[in-house]
Nucleic acid binder design. Sequence first.
DNA 1: CTATCATGTTACTGACCGGTACGTTGCAGG
DNA 2: CCTGCAACGTACCGGTCAGTAACATGATAG
Lengths: 229, 229
Amino acid sequence: MLLTGTLQERETYVPTGNIVNQLIGRPGMKSIEPTIKANDAPPPRAAERILQVARDLFYRQGIRAIGVDEIVRRAGVTKPSLYRSFPSKDELAASYLRHYDLEFWERFDEAVNAHPGDPRAQIVAFLTRVGKRTQRPDYRGCGMTNAAVEYPEHGHPARVVSEANKQELRRRLRAMAAAMGAGDAETLGDGLLLLIEGAYISGQLFGAGGPAQSVARNADLLIEASLKK
Amino acid sequence: MLLTGTLQERETYVPTGNIVNQLIGRPGMKSIEPTIKANDAPPPRAAERILQVARDLFYRQGIRAIGVDEIVRRAGVTKPSLYRSFPSKDELAASYLRHYDLEFWERFDEAVNAHPGDPRAQIVAFLTRVGKRTQRPDYRGCGMTNAAVEYPEHGHPARVVSEANKQELRRRLRAMAAAMGAGDAETLGDGLLLLIEGAYISGQLFGAGGPAQSVARNADLLIEASLKK
DNA sequence: CTATCATGTTACTGACCGGTACGTTGCAGG
DNA sequence: CCTGCAACGTACCGGTCAGTAACATGATAG
């Protein structure tokens, strides 16, 4: 007799442990300056080191693959220090992704600002840079995408950040497609998103010389075809 | 002082435990019929149940997220039964992916055989079905792609299967692009691969109504643009 | 001098990880 | 009936998982 079905599946995230800290601030990291004093001294230097090490390890190896013990060991701190600054490992992962989100939009806006009023050139510029990054030997794809793959559970802190980032990206791509004058801007915007996600994945799957190197060219081709319709 | 650099990074897979069994057969699963006798009795019914449960759980929750204990419990067997049929959890994951590979090419060839001599229609047919599958509520993307994200280590048994599948897919897509008469068949084939991978990821990221629903339309647009050049 | 704060130290929890030594069951062939 | 083997289960291994309790240290600021 199969036992399947007798156990609940848990498709939504349920937080564990440290309930108090989890409520004192959505960012998941306690504010650095609770009182307004001379801002020369950044007291919680442990939190910074932890986050820095976690970002590196989570991106390169994956979140599930890295334990908190390894993080604190490499950061040269101890476990209680981690749990004083972050409510849980899941929230630490979310903090990593929030930082990733900031860096992502910096890169994106850099390409946008380089070609004011020319969304097509903005897209091509952005994807040219993405295509180049995917060819680097240590390329590991998009931290957001990878996190969503690692945590399919709805409501998981890491996944929430990831989904928000992708929703916003979709919104902006569709807006840019509309600004290009595409007949079906939704389809073109979504097509560009598919190419981008494909580049992230193919970059880490194939390594240098993989399909991701042609993402800018293919995007330009797709734009071309979408504008002529 | 930072401790980074004092520890080796381990970027290549090193198998653990059960060295003997790991050598007796690449498929990772011991042959069901070692001697030629009446093939009516399929003795190791445990192995089949294990693989069946593992396939379901690995696909839906991810490989790292599922422990061997949960697999054997749901399969109604015990752990030694698992390790009699599979050298390790990693090899069980590889077996899951080998089965996934078979199913994948079945679906692919089904679309190909539906439109003999018309590679463009073959692609569109395949991607129409992919686009539909991505809209199902329990869609979890491509098992191959997900496994590669979960195991970035070169040489990991699961990743090896995944990489081989993607290499072959790339080869076939480029061949089909050439058969269409595309000026730059390599670029078109790679562009189609990017769209496909993007659909796999976006399907599980956005759920129903996401960008993946337009993958067939975008692929057709891209083909259109590539043939006119 | 003392109160406060960030951090470190040590030790621990219960659950789970992948994997294994060894005993038990049941069935087929002589 | 007995033997032998194949399939399976019981009970356990050391290690790691995320997370916590209790206390010590060192600096800073009033």
